[in-house]
Design a protein around this nucleic acid. Structure first.
Lengths: 157, 157
DNA sequence: TATTTCATTTATAAGTTTTTAAATGTTTGA
DNA sequence: TCAAACATTTAAAAACTTATAAATGAAATA
């Protein structure tokens, strides 16, 4: 019983899949997120499976991961045992919070290697220290901006 | 004639590979970028191939792509026919410029579908229009911040 | 022009990720 | 407790990405 998707929906879903893939995420994540963003009513795994025309296994897994990332959430429907999913209220902001977290890792990485190169003191240690400090400064400034942006976005809604 | 890499170099290279992969880029890009960031002197394809212990084919291809993205550049060495590559001066800033460009695409996507849903006018068109406008607003604000950040970073160097 | 020294392309192989389909768990209600 | 209605896991297949090694192409020099 395959439900129809409009050409519009199909295209949005395809573009999200590509975009998610471009940012290093599973394209199925993008498809599910797109479907739920443009759906007024929450959708069950079976409905998602039906609309995306693929088996339920990976949809179940990816939905759990999306829930862990706070991009989607379950909605309880009284008298129904199925799980119904919908996009979280500020899904765009949340997606960026997750992304900012990934970027923040670079601060740690740079700091770690600046320190290691400092202790180690090999041939080119001085140059490596300098570059790692530059990297650290960059991502620290980046992180400040990210926090500011997230704050502003939340305020603007 | 395999050249030695210090444990420090190895670890930096491995972390960059992982980080690039996490952001949806080829991990070899990360390895080459890391190597050139921490190298004072420009490196030929043969040297990169030697240091990364892999064949030259993909290194040639990825170096071209990195050059197209303005992350690395060729340096001419008089009396030598080889291509020597080094990281561009503001490689971190440039990497972010590229990244911001990827994000900017989402403005177009959202705008396109908001318009399409508007013309189309299917059942759930109103809801889709609303969500696409929200998406557009988000990425427009994002882009403003990105531009401001890039400006600030350049000014701070 | 022929040879050498490079970079680049290509066919193939290896590795990784994603998907399917089927089996297994788990919860609810009769 | 049993059956029904779900979600989840798993093994195998398919699709995709990355790497190798060899061939090709291009440019410089003798």
């Amino acid at each position: 019983m395959t439900k129809e998707k409009s050409a519009l929906m199909k295209n949005i879903i395809a573009d999200y899949a590509e975009s998610y893939s471009n940012f290093g995420l599973n394209p199925l994540m993008g498809r599910i997120v797109a479907l739920l963003i443009i759906s007024k009513e929450p959708k069950s795994l079976d409905e998602i499976s039906d609309l995306l025309e693929m088996s339920k296994g990976p949809i179940s897994q990816i939905c759990r991961r999306l829930k862990d990332k706070n991009l989607i959430e379950k909605e309880w429907v009284p008298g129904d045992r199925k799980d119904y999913y919908k996009a979280t209220d500020d899904i765009f902001g949340q997606a960026y919070i997750n992304h900012a977290e990934k970027m923040r890792k670079n601060i740690e990485i740079a700091g770690k290697y600046a320190a290691e190169a400092n202790e180690n003191g090999g041939d080119d240690a001085d140059y490596i220290i300098e570059r790692m400090r530059e990297m650290k400064a960059f991502y620290e400034m980046m992180d400040e901006f990210n926090q500011k942006f997230i704050e502003n976005w939340k305020a603007s809604r």
